[in-house]
Design a binder for these strands. Sequence first.
RNA 1: GCCCUCGUAGCUCAGUGGAUAGAGCGCGGGUCUCCGGAACCCGAAGCGAAGGUUCGAUUCCUUUCGAGGGCACCA
Length: 588
Amino acid sequence: MKSLRELIEEAVTEALVAVVGPEGAEIDPLVRPTPDPQFGDYQSNVAMGLAKRLRRKPAEIAADLVAALHLDAVCEPPEIAGPGFINFRIRPAYLSEVLGRLQADPRVGVPLAEQPERTIVDFSSPNLAKEMHVGHLRSTIIGDAIARVLEFQGQDVLRLNHVGDWGTQFGMLIQHVRETQPDVLQHPERFRIDDLESFYREAKQRFDNDPAFADAARRAVVDLQSGEEVANRLWQTFCAESLRHAHEIYDRLDIRLIDRGESFYNPMLPEVVEEFLARGLAVEAEGAVCIFLEGFKNREGGPLPVIIRKSDGGYNYDTTDLAGIKHRVQVEQARRIIYVTDIRQRQHFDMVFAAARAIGWVPEGTKLEHVGFGMVLGPDRRPFKTREGGTIKLKELLDEAEARAAGVVEAQDERRRELSPEQKAEIARAVGLGAVKYFDLSHNLASDYVFDWETMLALDGNTAPYMLYAYARIRSIGRRAGVDLDALPSDVPLIIEHPSEVALAKELVQFPTVIQQVAVDLRPHLLTEYLYGLSRAFSTFYDRERGVRVIDAEPEGVRLSRLRLAEMTARVLKLGLGLLGINVVEQM
RNA sequence: GCCCUCGUAGCUCAGUGGAUAGAGCGCGGGUCUCCGGAACCCGAAGCGAAGGUUCGAUUCCUUUCGAGGGCACCA
């Protein structure tokens, strides 16, 4: 189904053809939402730009366009305002017709992809040598939300956890453990993530301060690569325990991921280098195999290469990522590959994408996209750390979120004292985890944000507690009205008359457009903005001064219509929050 | 030095080549005998700066100031 905006765009384009001739079809009709409801819902700004070209006054052109428009079923007669704006106001009758079609649709108008697009979302991707920490939060949350939106569209999504399970850090760990913890080899089952964390710290310190150990660590990497048994057993133990730990976090966050670490691509690395060399796209420079691409410069202004084989013969993440692209395109048949990492890696991905395209691995129309996000900052506006300067473990952060949320729930409950301890715990979990996710997703991707418990757990404003409360309260309307909102007839005649009903209806019909936009732009905060706006529209609808009666509305037809509007609002909230990875609760 | 991201209200954040730049918190004032006030209404207060393109720029371009980040064998 076409969106309102598309309908108007098509009509304006048709009018343009009528007014200026066939080339009118090529003109952007410049249809936009209006900045102010007094100007209607949409406006076309095309007349102003045409004035010079046609040597006529914009208002006259606008008048001709309006005369040629056929939108009677959708809009009130368009008005010309200001220097030549054409203003469109959607007819309430049209809104109720559209909503009437959506009320029986569990997808609320979001179309299912006719031709699912094979899509890979590469996200979370922790380094397996360490416990998951706050640095992994954003990729995990954002990647999951993006995957959920694309899955809801019916795309064929593969969620890949490109874990760091290879490289020098494992050499350090292996060597350190081999020297100091013979026990681990005998009893790998006793080995826990906490041990890994402290081993890593110790190993890192030795690596930085003891050249002999550093050498041994590098040799341990060689052992690992050459299949030496002890090194490999240790490596497998580390990886297994790390992944077990990571999936505890994922389960808690309700996130599914397929682990496919860097080591998966190891066998493909030599041929990546060979292929670039054979095609003449890579050359040896300073002992390393480099791809020099147009437009990338180093600090001295010289060329900046993609290094695919180091001078010591080893491979790095450029090589692995290139192998990854090749595999994902050729074996996985991906048509869209989305990398969710922090924005500092933007240049790396720009270069790797360019290299992959240069060698022809990426067919026309296949999209490689980097979703880069900003840092999580502490109250001091520095990268978020513990008071002692250590990293903040994800597990502890989630624990604290739930504990703090429990306090919020308790304070709410004091007004009513009707929730059981189990209910409170469930609500605290939903609110706490929801708060962390929602706060993250509601920020513009590229900007850093300050991690602030108070703001994210506030009951007012654009927060998870507010949204969850909004949902719970609407559900309670059903209970109080003695109606099962989920069992309303699927063809309730919708009466959209009061301004607050019109405003709410306009919000509801926008849902498919917003989902579409998030899927294209990969910006989850567009969805949080929308859901917040929807909640506010409902708030006005339900307000005793500005809104309408609902539970006790008369006659029955009006009451049913308004209950349906409430139900649809709840449904969109639940669906929308669900696409952000946030679970709702029926009571709060 | 080059490149990237970003500078919007006291604070935390949205936003658009178009008509008067929006929320939340905080602040000042007011309303409703309140379907669970997630109340509601009014008000003060802002596009870092300067140029340019444009009928129109907060948005695009240039310069400049400021913040953070990246810049050859870590990922």
